[in-house]
Design a protein around this nucleic acid. Structure first.
Lengths: 216, 216
DNA sequence: GGCCGTGTACATCGAAGGATGCAGGCGCGG
DNA sequence: CCGCGCCTGCATCCTTCGATGTACACGGCC
């Protein structure tokens, strides 16, 4: 059960070093080597390796784009390798579907362990990068502050009113809400009116926006 | 330069095991032990450890809340420990500001290494959890698929119509839109009507929702 | 039981929203 | 030059919305 690895790295010397390291592991086989992103994708298609060890900075097609391609076609798991832990690379690579992210100053043993980890289908992030990933994850968007006050106000709504609010968030009219919740249109209007009052909003549009922001 | 660790874990036997493991490392000192979340926070205040090893499930105050408290006060880095890799725990703990997340089935050596990693200010995620974290990070919201068709349709709007759409996304009424864009209310209505037609929507509420999704 | 308070339900009426028709102002190619 | 298409702007008419008053069922409490 050897792990077949495709090494994609444009600098010949570095690539040779990576190959040497990988070969030193008994359970890893270097299935192929690519010198740019396009070649990486092409070889991934034909060789069907288990793991692609992908450099970020490469000519013709950068590593992030190549990763996106490989992942989209379901060809292999991708372990991204870079010299710098620049945020844009990390986040870009992970959004592109990379299974892991390591820095080039990683010890040989850790690199091998990383390849094994990714081959098992698990994720892997260089420790130095993890804390920033966590920070980014904890606050995906500055605008994604649901405003505790609003959240509390929504929690104070009756169940029926929250259902109606959810419908509003989907852009439904009073008549459509009434149909979906099986009530008269007049009743739907009442609920809309009441929740607008409780949330201190002036129109269903604002309610819809709020429902969107809170992810209903 | 020993690392001072506070162990917070309600089950006495497990806590004893953790302490034993930590003591076996020459550079780690167990500064204190807490049996619930409140005690953990209290001891963190008085002992000022470098790292808090925090269980998730604890009486009186759960580990996630205790983590939030400890991090908010800047008392120590927190390494969260749990039996299950349930998403809610992971994401909750990370949002609370934890520096790392390990499962209880972690090897003794890895646990010690994890404490050292967190003490260095780096992040740490159990490999089995990392791939889900990556997945969550790559797709913060499933609904965040802007739907290329919609995006294209919005691009086909006239500049004026896009301005109006943006206003709609903020929940403004026709009168308010007219005031902000300096036009008659009748004109604002025209633009709303036209963009509704182009986007194949049936009400301003749906337009507002769309504007939200596209982040206008 | 009798009396709240609350959630749900419906009808009415003035106000807003939305469809439609039409006019002035551009830029473009015949 | 003149028609043509397109964007922008305004006015009219009908629909939908939203505020308000009211009714009834339910659960807790004296």
């Amino acid at each position: 059960m050897t792990i077949r690895v495709l090494v994609a790295e444009d600098q010949q010397a570095v690539r040779a070093g990576l190959v040497l390291i990988l070969r030193s592991a008994g359970d890893i086989e270097v299935a192929g080597e690519a010198a740019d992103g396009e070649e990486a994708v092409r070889l991934a298609r034909s060789l069907r390796p288990d793991v692609v060890l992908m450099d970020v900075q490469m000519p013709r097609l950068d590593g992030v784009s190549a990763t996106r391609q490989v992942v989209a076609e379901g060809l292999a798991d991708v372990l991204v390798l870079t010299t710098f832990d620049l945020d844009e690379y990390v986040f870009g690579a992970l959004r592109a579907g990379a299974s892991g992210f390591l820095l080039k100053n990683t010890e040989a043993a850790d690199l091998i362990a990383g390849v094994r980890t990714v081959a098992r289908g698990e994720g892997l992030i260089a420790p130095a990068v993890t804390r920033r990933l966590i920070a980014e994850f904890a606050a995906p968007k500055p605008a994604r502050q649901p405003d505790p006050a609003q959240h509390a106000a929504v929690a104070a709504l009756t169940p029926r009113e929250r259902e109606v609010l959810s419908c509003l968030g989907q852009g439904l009219s009073n008549a459509e809400i009434a149909a979906r919740l099986e009530m008269a249109e007049a009743t739907a209007k009442t609920h809309v009116s009441r929740l607008l009052g409780k949330l201190e909003l002036r129109s269903r549009v604002q309610a819809a926006v709020l429902a969107q922001e809170l992810g209903l």
